[in-house]
Structures are given as C-alpha cells and as structure tokens.
Design a protein around this nucleic acid. Sequence first.
DNA 1: TTGCTCCTCACGTCACGTGAGGTGGC
DNA 2: TTGCTCCTCACGTCACGTGAGGTGGC
Lengths: 269, 269
Amino acid sequence: MSAMVTIGEFSRLTHVSVKALRHYHEIGLLPPSEVDPVTGYRRYAVTQVSTAQLIRRLRQLDMPLPGVFAVVAAPDAPARDAAIRDHLLRMEAELDRTRGVVAALRSLLEPADGPLHLDHRRIGDLTALTLRQVVSRADIGAWCSEAFARLYTEAAAARVEPIGPAGATYDAAFFEEDAGAVLVYVPVPPSTPATSGLAPQPVPGGLFVVGVHSGPFTDFDRTYAAVGSHVAEHDTALPDPIREIYLAGPPEIEDPDDFRTEVCWPISA
Amino acid sequence: MSAMVTIGEFSRLTHVSVKALRHYHEIGLLPPSEVDPVTGYRRYAVTQVSTAQLIRRLRQLDMPLPGVFAVVAAPDAPARDAAIRDHLLRMEAELDRTRGVVAALRSLLEPADGPLHLDHRRIGDLTALTLRQVVSRADIGAWCSEAFARLYTEAAAARVEPIGPAGATYDAAFFEEDAGAVLVYVPVPPSTPATSGLAPQPVPGGLFVVGVHSGPFTDFDRTYAAVGSHVAEHDTALPDPIREIYLAGPPEIEDPDDFRTEVCWPISA
DNA sequence: TTGCTCCTCACGTCACGTGAGGTGGC
DNA sequence: TTGCTCCTCACGTCACGTGAGGTGGC
C-alpha cells in the first residue's frame, strides 16, 4: 500500500496545479486513487506521481490532451514512445514552418524587389489525371505532395507522359474559410485510357492574369497580392477557382528558393 | 484613389480568412476602408493589402493581437522593428525552454539513476537580506535572477559578505495555483545595518527533509517528487513554504548540468 | 429572376483560470 | 473553536470557427 496524499500535496509533489488536477480527473485522464464518497475529497497515491509528471511534460510541449491520453494509456513502452516521437516530429515540422515565416516576415519588411511581371494569358481546356478534395490550409502541403505522387504513379501505370506542367485549382473557400476544394492535375494526352483508379478528366481553361512566384510557398501571399491587386485595378475578377501551375518545385527541386510557380487569376474577357 | 474590393476578394488577395477579417474589423485592428451604411457591406482598399499581410505573418508567429496592434500602429519603422524583434526574442526563449523540456522528457522515460539520498536537517533561524513578491511560475526564472542581483548589490553596498548560500521559499500557492508568494534571501550577519533600500529580516528555520537536485531547473519536479514522496510515506508534512537552497547555480555556474540545489520539505518534529 | 455573396447574432473550441459560495478536517 | 483546505458550480480567456437565419447585388 503506497501512501495517499491530498490534492494540494499531490500538486506540490508533481508541480501540476490543483485546477489542472481536477480537470484531469473530470476528463478521466488522471483519476485520484480514491474519492471520499461523502465529502468528495480526492486522495492520490504516491505511485501516481510518475504519471502526473509525464502528463506535465507532455503538456509543456503543447501536446493536446487526447494525445496525452493516448500516451498515458499506451499498452507498452514501444507504443508510448512512438506516440511521443510522433509529437516531437510534429514539433520539428512546426519549427521549420516558423523559420519559414520569420524569413517571410523579414522579406516583407525589406523594400520590395520591384514590380512583378504580369501577363494576360488564355489557357486552353486540358485533359488530365486529377484528384479533388476539400483540404484545409494547414494540410495543403502534405496533401498535395501525396496527391501528385499518386497522379504520377497512375500516369506511369497507364504508360503516358505528362504533356505539360502539373497544376492545381483552389476554390474561393480555400482562402476565405481556410479550407476548401482543391483539385490537383497532371495534363495527359486526350487519348489516355482510364487506369485502374483514375479516368482522365477535362480541366476547363479560361482567361487569366498570370504572375510567376519565385521562392518558397510561405511567401505565396505576396504574389497573390500583386496579381490580385492588378486584377482589382484593371480587370474584372471571376469567382472561378484560382490556378497554380508548378513550373519548378518539389520533389525535383530541393531548394525552396528555386521554386517557380505561376499564379493564375481568372478574369472575364 | 486605389481600387476597392469586397471582403471575399480581399481575403483571396491576402490569404486572411473572411472570419478573421471581420474579427479584425470588430476589434479595430484593420477596419475596412469603407462600410456601406445601409447594407453593412465592407469594402477594402487595395492599399490595405500590405497591412493585412503583416498581420497575417505576425499571427502565424503566434504574436498576441495586442502585440500585433502595437506593431501595426507603430509610429515609425524603428518602433515597429523593435516590437517585432521583441517577439522573436520571446520565441527564441520559448524554443530554449522547449529544448529543455524535451531533454527532461527523455530523462523521465529512461530508467531512474537510483534513489536520491535524503537527509533530515534542522535549519536554524537566519538573518538575511530578502525580497518577497507574488510570482507566477512562468516568470520565476527571470524574477529570481533579477532579485538576487539586487540582493547582492545591496550586500555589497552594506559592505557585508553573505555568510551562507542563498535560498528561496515558495508558498504552497506557487505550486497549487501556478503563482504564489516567493521570498528570496541572502544570509548576512545579524549585525548587518539596514541599507538604503533593505533592512535585514529574520528567516525562521525548522525541520526539513532535504534532497539535492543536480541539473537544470526544468527537471526540478523529479527531485520534488522524490523528497515529497518520502515525506508522504515517512513523515508529517507541514503547510509551510518549501525552501530551495542554491548551492551551485547561475550566474557563477554556466552549465545547467552542474547546478546543485537543495530542496527542503518542511516536516513536523 | 436566380444563386451567390455578404450580413449579424449566438454559440462552440481548448485547457484550464477565476472567483463565488459553501463545507469538511485538524 | 478557528482558520485552512477542499468542494462544486458558473463564467471567463483567446482568436477566431461554426452554423443559423436572413438580406443585398449582379
């Protein structure tokens, strides 16, 4: 039988606040060893200290409570360590993103590189292998790389060569609500047969104002601003999806500074 | 006169969601250039794009809205850049803390280094230069280093040598509510005269269970758990403040792995 | 005219923190 | 007995997101 302590003493032992301990009880994450049925007083066993310490560390790393729950309830050490490693990987990715944003912030505060060159262009109707899904902005990078990998695999399976650069179209909701329908496509000859998973689809064209974005995707809003401002001042924007055409990007190009992407804003004739 | 756009188009231009734009209007951070008095429709000027981009970047870096407000309203570039640099410094500090927590998490998952050596000790009443304030856990490091710097300056001004290691006492609320009264002290001879700012104060002693914590402060909860668990199992804890005695620490010791701190848990005789 | 965009509430999210008001334990 | 600890609501925080229900603009 291990010693029992009050919630206050358990808090001093573990450095977890009393309010947090009550919360963890309420959600079932760390129920006290005993609860007095008449007074409601919580009593914790000293053996619960290590669990509380683990929870505290994970929360200090901003792991969401459902994740903490999974770690604490993990059946064995490998499962537990995998859940923790997962979170540390997500934190690394977050850190990378933050580095990118800091760089983007600096570039925003420096004087601009001169006006962006803009073109009017009529893009014809295409035939393409496509994937379409509602995607949130946070997931867009991962989803796109997975989707393009799938499209190129399908193209190889159908023994066709892409006949132009890959692209994607973004519904207005993707920008306005931070989540919306995204369609990625790889253009193929109209004669391409359906593969096991994918039939070629038409991708309708139209008239666009086009600007080339050079550099990492973190910076995208600058080119969007340039293209969109030009449209607002000189053309009539259409509510159609905005198109991006990936002239140079991952996985072939490794350095984000070398990425080149066309941003195509649909306008009326 | 710059072109005006609807909230939806402004959202596509800036990559700030419509909901966020309405929120920024509501709090006065980014009011639209015009609001139709009858329909309530917002109209943004294209010249507002750069402000929106700046706000977006700062929010991506988790700068709180009051801080964003300060940056956007900054009277000139130096003031603005200083506010941003400030936030980047805070982010660096956060990152340091995170690194520490990750290390602490690893050490928690590794097998323990064997049981901690614990002593019973009667600490006598002291005379000391002291500072006392309610401090939150988040601020404790910064506050302590400032407070000790002040105490040593005062001791030098009074021409007295400290006659023992410095320490601090922490009220229960510091642990139970993540904020509570902390008293830092530097022991001096009882004959020490009052200086301009500080009169020597008595620091009452008592009976304690004492364990030595070796390593960075991030790890403190492990030693607290060991000392406190021992007390729970073998002694009667008192509600008095817990005392830490800084045998080796900053600023003299640089490597956190070399820090040594006594954790003293008050018990009844 | 139709459907799309925009509007304003009101409420939800996440992980607790902040009191208020009251009772039990030593 | 007194004061301290503990209890349970109910509501607040932060920066928006999520619908509901309705209207304006092309």
